[in-house]
Design a protein around this nucleic acid. Structure first.
Length: 264
DNA sequence: ATGTCAATCGTGGATTGA
């Protein structure tokens, strides 16, 4: 089972790229972020024609998350996080697919630091941590997937010293990431590549992709029940090189599936 | 700051967010 995450940076502006990549990579489940589209402009028909059912939580102009599945109709389990009734950003959607709880998230960027946007980011991480604790109590495989907008360590950025005062790398955010992980979550990519510099984002500015001036922002957190089944993890770096690409690359993990018992 | 995108309002280009 292939579970993917892709910050698409405008689903309608990049629908052709998305469909091309789906046809090429054939993931089973895809978590999308930064739809930048209201609910009534989500291209569900084109995705259905490509073989994917969708659930989505859109918003005018910014944010927006969706989950695609090749397994048929999707059982949605949640949209949004508790803890702030005034938060209207569409940043979290969750479903139960093929026996796995999959949370798709778009964590606030938080720049500029310091400021209200950074404060909102920290609060959002705490709300996510609270929800993650609840999910971790279930006797089910769980994956929390998406654009975390956090570089957890110096290995996760091409130039750590440049990012000291950046919300993506501030110690306050990295500390909350560690607190979240300490509940028992496995960072799937770091588990598969313990020492390697891997990036999932390259800025549009200053030929960042050509220079490999990247950041690792998109993560898969797996609970124990799922981490045991992790087979591989891949960054689809070449897709970032396509014309009219998002500034993120699609990323995916492969999960081994227990063979279903034969019907008797 | 630099310089690159998309959405918006609303029809040309400034503004906002990333």
């Amino acid at each position: 089972m292939k579970i993917a995450s892709y910050n698409i940076n405008g689903i309608n502006a990049r629908l052709d790229n998305l469909l091309r990549w789906l046809a090429e990579a054939k993931p089973d489940v895809v978590c999308l972020q930064e739809l930048k589209a209201p609910d009534d402009r989500f291209p569900w028909k084109a995705l259905l024609a490509a073989g994917y059912h969708s659930i989505w939580h859109g918003q005018k102009s910014w944010n927006g998350v969706a989950i695609l599945s090749s397994y048929g109709e999707i059982q949605e389990t949640r949209r949004g996080l508790d803890g702030d009734p005034n938060d209207l950003h569409s940043r979290y959607i969750e479903a139960f697919i093929n026996g796995i709880v999959i949370g798709c998230l778009y964590l606030p960027n938080g720049n500029p630091f310091p400021g209200p946007k950074f404060d909102y980011k920290l609060k959002w991480i705490k709300r996510l941590t609270k929800h993650a604790k609840k999910l971790n109590g279930f006797d089910l495989p769980v994956a929390l997937v998406g654009d975390y907008n956090i570089m957890p360590t110096e290995l996760d950025t091409y130039k750590p010293e440049k990012y000291i005062d950046n919300a993506l790398f501030r110690p306050e955010a990295r500390k909350l990431w560690q607190i979240l992980l300490s509940q028992g979550w496995t960072d799937a990519f770091r588990k598969m590549y313990p020492e390697q510099r891997i990036y999932t984002f390259w800025d549009y500015l200053r030929n960042a992709y050509q220079r490999d001036a990247g950041l690792r922002l998109d993560h898969f957190l797996l609970n124990h029940k799922l981490a045991d089944k992790l087979q591989s993890a891949t960054v689809e770096k070449h897709v970032r090189g396509w014309a009219h690409s998002s500034d993120h690359a699609p990323v995916w993990i492969e999960i081994s599936e227990a063979r279903a018992p034969h019907p008797s």
